[in-house]
Design a protein around this nucleic acid. Structure first.
Lengths: 136, 136
DNA sequence: CTAAACTGTAACAAATTTTATTACAATAAA
DNA sequence: TTTATTGTAATAAAATTTGTTACAGTTTAG
């Protein structure tokens, strides 16, 4: 359940924060991240859907932050890219005839949610502006 | 990068806790989890390496908890199966000519470590005995 | 007003990771 | 001494992630 989407999104957002009043193209962003521009565009679509970036089509188009970096929490970024249970899960259905198999998915999900809450709480303490300040 | 290893390990450990004074075979465990017995054996090797279970070879062999369930923290389980950065990472090297690309891996790693510490702290508050009690 | 530089999106391909399978030697109890 | 089991390797299959190509649609710059 862990892929590179959080890190790609953070990279995109940090670049956008570093160039306010400008729109950055997917090609430029891809060049810094060192991935394919189409992946950048897909990730931007997701970030836009979550209200973090905005884009301009056409010539000299590109993307920019949809709101001030001070108002973007790292937990917002996490939630935008989150897909599966943080602790992972077995793909197969456990045996329902077994007392443990019957209930384990439910109990592991509860646990996963608690753990994820702790993570999100931690991430919500840092803004994109804070993160971006670390670069110099 | 999220796989099912934490959930498989938790399932194994819970089953072992539910049958104290017994050794359980990989076939039996696999039947409850609904995965291949070889995967169970591999996971058990890992849990053993981390001091959580012990095994007996030969006929009527199998596995059992290496220490009381009250003394096994869920953070111990997490640490036993942990492999990559919890927030994921880009496989490619970011562009070192870009001020952001040059430093982002370091900053994301720091962030990931902080977040993981919060998770581990949370997980350390529950023991295997606590978890197992939820099943009835 | 049209060519150029973009985004948006689909379709597909390649690479990587995860999970499953088969096979069998080593071990130990029944 | 047969049988049930672990340990382990080798390989295959499936799933997921990442990359590529292609092109229609949009907008601005010249």
């Amino acid at each position: 359940m862990n892929n590179g989407r959080f890190s790609i999104s953070m990279h995109i957002l940090t670049l956008l924060e570093k160039s306010p009043n400008e729109v950055l193209s997917s090609d430029y962003l891809a060049g810094s991240i060192n991935i394919n521009p189409v992946l950048v565009r897909k990730e931007i679509i997701n970030l836009r859907k979550h209200g973090l970036v905005a884009s301009k089509e056409g010539k000299s188009g590109g993307s920019y932050l949809a709101r001030p970096a001070k108002e973007i929490l790292l937990s917002d970024v996490y939630e935008a890219v989150r897909q599966n249970s943080i602790l992972g899960q077995n793909k197969n259905k456990p045996n329902p005839k077994c007392i443990v198999g019957k209930q384990i998915d439910e109990h592991l999900n509860n646990l996963s949610n608690e753990v994820e809450d702790a993570m999100i709480k931690k991430l919500s303490k840092t803004t994109l502006a804070d993160f971006s300040k670390k670069f110099n």
